[in-house]
Amino acid sequence: MSDDEQISSYLRRVRSALRVPREQRRRAVEEIRNHLDDGAAAHMRSGATREQAIGLAISELGRPDTVAAEFNDTGAHGSDSTGVPRWLPLLPPLLLFVARIGLLVWSVIWMADGWTLGERATQQAYLLGAVTAGVLSYGAYFSIKRAQSDPAWRWGAWTCTSLALWMIVFPPF
């Protein structure tokens, strides 16, 4: 592995373990890169070869996952690593849930004095829609919470969002 590849590989491993917003990640990697360059230069001034100097600078910084974990612990992040607000995926299913509950309440109020067969079917559809939207909202909420420790759960949240959007555009019931 060449000297530059050694640094690039280290930075790649730090970057992949970082769970911070995009701007913070860019800044962290830039600072670490500069730190490695400064450290290697200082060791070379002390007589180390470039390869040795880079190795020493890297070992002084610590393991990539440990360095990334320190950055990840710097506080609660309002956005995921792509910079998208963390709670955004919850919005569509929640809006759908509120709308479906609204329709259900409206149907109970306005159809209270006797339902026709069609009205009963409509109300059942509203109920089914509200339950489905509720499940999707909870799924998005649960996934967002789990994504704090395991970012792979973001896909779960976005899947719930996609299903909610699909229900809004093409209401199945």
Binding site: Q24, A28, E31, I32, H35, G39, E60, L61, G62, R63, T66, V67, E70, F71, D73, T74, G75
Partner: peptide, 15 residues
């Protein structure tokens, strides 16, 4: 100072 914790500490101080 463990150098890997230097920048996160600086970020915390800045925040």
């Amino acid at each position: 100072i463990v150098e890997g914790s230097l920048y996160p500490a600086l970020h915390r101080l800045e925040a």
